[in-house]
Design a protein around this nucleic acid. Structure first.
Lengths: 210, 210, 210, 210
DNA sequence: AATGAATGAGCATTCATTCAT
DNA sequence: AATGAATGAATGCTCATTCAT
């Protein structure tokens, strides 16, 4: 049985090894620019091996996304579960959590946001698609729950918390992509942090009943 | 001279015809999925003809973007220039303008937002890239100017109007992409309108000094 | 009638204009690298016009060859016809004539030599092919005739003068191509002149009976 | 280790198989007329496979050239190294060697000679170009060395042996191409052998001091 | 489990040539 | 006579994916 466990562990490791390589390559070449060969070269494996661990390139990419989403969910749920904070403080924490996620791997965050599209999701295996769907719902729900109390006790506007979640996630994603666009157009420094801070401050203020 | 004019007009029309076909095909297959042949088939032309009007596939796509950005700029500048409105009203108008742009061609808006990336911009001819850059700056500036008065007269928070512009554009882009993601995950109805409305209402409230 | 003549003249001129452009373009891009568009651009005409004056690209190229061959023939026949020179002197003159032809347009000489191949000649219209064939025979014959007297009077080895012509033309063509190869491989200066001189000197010596 | 050796051998064979097919196709259609598909069809492989063994079409062609040059070098060096022969005999041997090389593959010899041009050499990878350059220098040098002794001991004219080499190679190349041209113009029998023989006989006689 | 080797299916792009005007 | 516009037919090359070993 020790043997089986070891095998299991090794399998996980190999999978991880490929994902690490993919992360690197996707980050530097983008999803479209990265070839399977690029990735397996980086992982010091043969292209064929990749297909032992992932059904295809898209699913490898999706698995990478899942990892990221998992981390994101953990972060956001931990904010949500800090029971003793008042709504405003929670929003502040949420902002920090989002920025931390961004910092984890700015280049791939962009890829995740950019390619989580109708088009691409349709090419995934049903299981993976539903997993991504679940995860997405989960973090959207977690964000919504951060707003729930404030809505319930009348501190916040009387709207569906899910709408607030959409808006917060929207600004986050939007600002991250805007950042990337700006980098493409030339301008340099990282504006994301202060802008995201301001955005959530405004939302925090604007969401309050009076 | 009538002849020359007609030729000129026909040339424009052919170009437009290709752009229309491209719009359609890009909308249904995305940039990556659409082939030059798909597009020229749709336009009832031969692939070679496309290259008489556009340098390559990327530049055709970029031209489509430019069209959209032009319309966007026109819309936003018209909001900005409605001098007699108070700041809040202007934000409301801005929201409507953004939604109208979205309605013009929801599918391609997503493409524009998704592919205005560092990666892709680098592949364009310098002229086109700089044109896109100019346009982007232009509408960002126009949005910023909508907030300028409110900042100047102390109605709004004392922050750089450009930051407000980033945030507004961010939510817009973010919500549009979120909409697309959701459509990929399940078929939801169009949530964009109410959410965008709420978003700008919150921003409108949150941006005011007290 | 004056009108017809003028038309005729203009037609010739236009033809010449295209040939001049082609010469230039072929010289700088080679036969393979030059496109019909390149040539007509250089001639400030539209591609379609070229086809009013030449059946196709190959025939345009072949016409250029003919021009060159005509000049070559003239040069060589003039050497042949200088009756009062002794055989050796004639060979010397021949050498100079060949080098002069080379100097006329070194770049295109290479093209002519390189592409006067079985493969390419087969694509020509029968008339043009036979014209080229005639011209080629003509200059080969003229060269041969330069040797005829020497053979007849016993000064030269008793071989068919045509064989001597093949050899002389062979060295010439071979050295010209060798020159081009060397330029491709890096080395710079023009070695053709002295080498050609030495070659014909050797031939001149070697061909004599003792 | 037997397995590795076999794999190695098979890899060589596949490469060879492609080169054989290419040789055939190039010989019948020329470099320009032969398509990658033609070649891989002949080799009973898919086009993609060709690219596993050769970087591109040009490099495949160049590899073919290299093979030929290698054989040529071997032949010529063996002549050079036959120490006990007098200069004249060596020239005779040289002539035979050149003709033998021609006989090996007359059709492709023409291709090699025709396309070893500035234009084409520039498109090769630096390594391959330098290899061809090296080989070319090598056989030119070997030919020169055949003449060296004769020059040194005063049998031959006091000129640089390299010039003699240029001339010999020139006649050879020139006569081979002339042969090809003639075949294009009409179907002649093979004149190359006697003409080449005569050429080198003349050179042999002409090069001697008195 | 791993991979070397092979490939099917594309795909953007080029270019000589044609033809209605 | 001239041409602007159009295109048919290629063509070299790529890449995700498979499979015998």
């Amino acid at each position: 049985m020790g043997i089986e466990e070891r095998k299991e562990r090794e399998k996980k490791m190999r999978r991880q090894q490929i994902m690490d390589a993919a992360k690197k390559v996707f980050a530097s070449k983008g999803l479209g620019g990265a070839t399977v060969e690029n990735i397996t070269e980086e992982a010091e494996l043969s292209p064929a091996t990749l297909y032992l661990y992932f059904k295809n390139k898209d699913e490898l990419f999706a698995s990478l996304n899942l990892k990221m989403l998992e981390a994101l969910i953990a972060k956001i749920e931990s904010v949500r579960d800090q029971g003793n904070l008042n709504p405003e403080k929670k929003i502040k924490k949420l902002q920090k959590a989002l920025y931390e996620v961004y910092l984890t791997d700015p280049l791939n965050i962009v890829n995740v946001l950019r390619f989580q599209s109708k088009e691409r999701l349709r090419n995934l295996s049903p299981e993976l698609a539903s997993q991504i769907s679940d995860f997405t719902k989960k973090y959207m729900k977690a964000i919504a729950e951060i707003f729930k109390n404030g809505v319930r006790d009348g501190t916040f506007l009387d709207r569906h918390p899910a709408a607030f979640a959409d808006i917060v996630w929207g600004v986050f994603a939007g600002l991250v992509l805007l950042e990337d666009t700006k980098k493409g157009l030339e301008q340099g420094k990282d504006h994301l942090r202060p802008t995201l801070e301001l955005a959530l401050e405004i939302i925090s203020r604007g969401i309050k009943k009076n």
